[in-house]
């Protein structure tokens, strides 16, 4: 029990601090490399989803709207597919026929999923501010959630132009997103 209490004492002070978003590098639907750090200075929504997840499919059109309408202001979506490898063939047709244009990434080794979303809920989204800090986490989706999410994104976008930001994520070799 003393060990448990010691663990609590260790964790609690840390939990009061802020958090930089961990960088990652994944392949997109065309095999190109996409990293979080190449979007430094932007407001980024990392959205974990799957083709079998109904609420995820309901939310994605709203994310596309935000991506289209707020992209010029420095907002982007990185949609990380959590589909199993055996379902890889389902991902690209779903994205193409839905005409989603944001980058869609495969996390085949589940490394990013483990780092950001070790729980069970989908969809799960991590909102990263221009400063590279995690602004908020969002689990699940119900109609109307997109309104509050958009307001939060617009507030983050208003916190400075991309060139003024001091990104916290580490830079890494980049490749232009194909989507």
């Amino acid at each position: 029990m003393r060990h448990l209490l010691a663990l609590a004492a260790l964790v609690l002070p840390l939990s009061a601090m802020a958090d930089p978003a961990s960088d990652f590098s994944l392949r997109d639907l065309n095999g190109d490399t996409v990293t979080l750090s190449q979007h430094a200075g932007q407001v980024v929504l990392i959205d974990f989803w799957a083709t079998w997840c109904g609420p995820c499919k309901q939310e994605l059109p709203h994310l596309q709207e935000m991506y289209t309408e707020l992209g010029d202001q420095g907002f982007t979506v990185l949609a990380v597919s959590t589909d199993d490898a055996r379902d890889k063939a389902k991902v690209k047709p779903f994205i193409r026929r839905s005409q989603f244009s944001f980058p869609v990434l495969y996390d085949t080794q589940s490394d990013v999923l483990t780092a950001y979303n070790p729980g069970k809920t989908l969809p799960f989204a991590v909102l990263v501010g221009r400063d590279g800090e995690v602004a908020s986490l969002h689990s699940g989706y119900n109609p109307g959630d997109e309104v509050a999410l958009r307001a939060e994104i617009e507030e983050l976008l208003a916190h400075g132009a991309p060139s003024q930001a001091a990104p916290a994520v580490e830079t890494a070799p980049t490749a232009a997103p194909a989507e």
């Binding site: 964790v11 840390l14 939990s15 009061a16 601090m17 802020a18 958090d19 930089p20 961990s22 780092a115 950001y116 070790p118 729980g119 069970k120 995690v134 986490l137």
Partner: peptide, 16 residues
């Protein structure tokens, strides 16, 4: 999940 950092250290704790 609690996200935290200090001196470049990030800590995420999830409890279910």
């Amino acid at each position: 999940p609690q996200e935290s950092s200090g001196n470049g250290v990030s800590v995420a704790v999830t409890n279910d």
